[in-house]
Amino acid sequence: MVVRIGELSRRTGVPSRMLRYYEEQGLLGALRSDNGYRCYGEAAVSRVQQIRGLLDAGLTTEIIRRILPFLEGPEGIHVHPACLTPELEGLLRGEVARIQARIDCLARNRDALLGYLAAVRPGSP
């Protein structure tokens, strides 16, 4: 089954503008019909969901573009060992450190807010 960009947008919840951006970044491929419309195969639905998940996890489009061809399924990051070059390993380790720094910052902010609430409303969680 072939779908056009509007249908892909509707089925994935990703705006058409973002789908065009994914195409520009080399994350998503589209064929062109005789009239110039973008056409996507049925697999594009799961590919877009996978891209969204990776972006939501904090990965950059550069890293996603490099690992996307080697992912084994939409449920998680299962990179084939042949994909892991020293350069990519360095990029991924950098992403892990960046994500951990964000987690640490969020935890400090959470603790500060909980401390404030406990100070102004003793006994509240």
Rank of each mutant, 00 (worst) to 15 (best):
I67P: 00
N35I: 03
R47V: 11
V14S: 04
L27K: 03
E7K: 05
A57S: 13
P86F: 00
I103A: 15
T61S: 06
I63S: 11
P69E: 09
S124F: 14
V3E: 06
A57D: 14
A118L: 08
V79R: 00
D104E: 14
L27N: 04
H78T: 15
R108C: 09
P86L: 01
A112G: 01
M1I: 06
G6P: 01
Y21I: 03
R20Q: 15
I51H: 01
I51T: 00
E75C: 10
V96L: 14
V45C: 01
E72A: 15
D34T: 01
L92Y: 06
L27D: 12
V3G: 03
V48D: 05
I51F: 07
S33R: 04
L55Y: 04
C83R: 00
G123A: 05
V45G: 01
E95K: 01
I63Y: 07
A57L: 13
E23G: 07
E89S: 09
E95N: 03
A107S: 02
R20I: 12
L92Q: 05
R38F: 09
G6I: 02
A44I: 03
I51P: 00
I51D: 03
V79L: 15
N35R: 03
V45W: 09
Q100W: 12
D56C: 10
L88K: 00
V120G: 05
E62Y: 06
R108G: 01
I64H: 00
G6F: 03
H80F: 07
L114M: 11
G94C: 03
A43Q: 11
R102D: 15
A97R: 07
R108P: 00
E7P: 00
E23P: 02
